[in-house]
Design a protein around this nucleic acid. Structure first.
Lengths: 338, 338
DNA sequence: CTGTTAGCGCATTCAT
DNA sequence: ATGAATGCGCTAACAG
């Protein structure tokens, strides 16, 4: 069981000093070394099957070329494309992603954050809904860059990439308004989550902009972004007696819950009530009826977040907030009011 | 910008030697040190905000507590639950996952594998369809344990966890047979992928076991596990003139393609033709009609794979192959023949 | 029980 | 252009 070959083995084989090998193997410093010698070293390294130990290098250079990625739950269809975007960009730049699921649980977050810091990650990308402010400060206090995904901080102290929720909900509202709806309901997300809250605010703003009243009782709140909560909140809505003709759901999962609530009451979408979601998750085009939704460029969110991080890794520049544009996707779940 | 606090800072603060600090901070070796001293060290570490550098430790101990996870594409709904299972189990054991997407592209695989080895991962979990045999040997030759997910090697030389494809397809075939079908078709997956091939073999075996003939022309092959290929192969099937009454699809995506092909021809599922998928992906229960499928315990695949790896990390035991049981899930896409 | 010493593999001074 | 020496932060073997 042969011990892995080190830079010293290569040095011995090439008949030079380890320091020289280090230089010859470094693209940046190859110039400092005689071309012949360099060639000899390269060849020796090749034939010995030398593999640089980045860990050891990291100890010296204080760079692990590793990025910590915090995700609430990769099982939520929203996150795979984001992670894919992150990973692609990071990989292209020679970085690798350490990925963890936090379930938005502060104690899990803390543990994972600690574990990643201990592994000397060069930066963090967090897609968690609410990284403890305390934890954030802890990170910010250090020199480890951080990029937030799908949320931002009020004080703009850290970089973030988010989709323009307000605009997105505006698209949704304008769409159903254009269809002729006036009694428009909002099944809102959790208000302690920035996306949930911003979408709610966007709904109110869009309604006002359209000259429509936000009817009391036509806004109901989910405690989580789940189908169950969507169904529960939608049931409340339908039992409220205000008779909405369209529902703007805080996201697609919630919209699915609305489908269920309608079905239980024997109502038909879109004949009786139109429903529009948010996120345009995979396969919502195959539901019955196909769900109209607001598409968010998920993969792009990931690539942009990675770019932002890589950049601040290079120049340590200051925090930037990127806002991405959503797009309306009209399918079969929205139609003119009965 | 204060330099991070090291074990030596702690030693100085506690008035002891760095070696002692190292011991006091190690749960396993705390016993070797005076309780009072240990307490003093702990306190000093605490108040200085000491964070051990696992990278440095790894250099010494040759363990990174990091596992490389190779996935074809996290965007494929099959993989998030598996990754989640892996990550949960790994995290509980103090390990963190380095995750990459390979797209089953050998050159990407090689690059990523190299990058992870350079980071001294303690082991690999690969969910890729076909890790180059050469690469495999390269890994196997080293001392880095490897667990394969969703595939195994003919020679059983490396550990793997797979679902019993043969049994799963048997469940599907028996189900439609029980419904009264006899003209049963198989829209098969790529035969160069072990899952695709095993399911095909399983189909043939199950048909024979049921005393049914595998009709020529009622088996069609997809080049990839995608909806497009499913639609294409299913179209071939329908145009073949053999008039199947049931289709056993190699996986859910392929089954979705079959839905499309039927629709194009104005055929109704399940009235004209029954369709059953494989994998039971998220949301297939919400399709129109809800897809009957064979459920594979995806998350469990992940946890078992992680367990296998952790175990071989501990005792270096030999390769084990774990076969997990699938389960039939009957929904609306299967019914008696017309 | 604790201090000493050495060294993991590498990059980087400083000499030469 | 290359060799020598040093140390990143930590653990392990050995003294004492």
């Amino acid at each position: 069981m042969s011990r892995p070959v080190t830079i010293r083995d290569v040095a011995r084989a090439a008949g030079v000093h380890p320091g020289t090998v280090s230089r010859a193997l470094d693209d940046e410093k190859r110039a400092l070394v005689n071309a012949e010698t360099a060639a000899r070293v390269l060849e020796a390294a090749q034939s010995l099957g030398y593999r640089p130990n980045r860990i050891a290098r990291g100890l010296k250079t204080n760079r692990s070329y590793t990025i910590g990625v915090l995700i609430p739950d990769i099982t939520n269809p929203l996150f795979p494309p984001i992670l894919r975007g992150i990973e692609d960009r990071l990989g292209a730049a020679g970085y690798t992603a350490l990925v963890v699921n936090t379930d938005n649980d502060p104690s899990r977050e803390r543990i994972h954050l600690e574990a990643m810091r201990a592994r000397q990650v060069d930066g963090f990308i967090s897609a968690t809904a609410r990284l403890d402010r305390e934890l954030l400060d802890e990170i910010g206090a250090g020199t480890v860059p951080l990029v937030l995904v799908n949320r931002s901080l009020e004080d703009r102290s850290v970089s973030s990439v988010t989709v323009n929720d307000r605009q997105g909900i505006g698209l949704a509202v304008d769409h159903v308004v254009g269809l002729g709806h006036t009694r428009i309901a909002h099944v809102a997300g959790p208000q302690n989550l920035s996306t949930g809250h911003r979408r709610y605010l966007g709904f109110v703003a869009a309604m006002q902009a359209a000259g429509l009243e936000v009817i009391e009782g036509l806004v109901r709140y989910c405690r989580y972004f789940t189908e169950e909560e969507g169904a529960r909140a939608c049931a409340e809505l339908l039992d409220g007696g205000e008779g909405p003709t369209a529902i703007v759901a805080a996201n697609d999962l919630v919209a699915l819950g609305c489908y269920d609530a309608l079905e239980v009451r024997g109502l038909s979408c879109p004949r009786d009530i139109s429903i529009i979601g948010f996120n345009d998750m995979p396969f919502v085009d195959r539901l019955q009826p196909p769900l109209s939704s607001v598409r968010v460029p998920q993969r792009e969110i990931g690539t942009v977040a990675a770019d932002l991080l890589l950049q601040s890794l290079e120049d340590g520049g200051e925090a930037r907030e990127i806002l991405l544009d959503p797009a309306l996707v009209v399918r079969g779940s929205t139609a003119p009011p009965p």
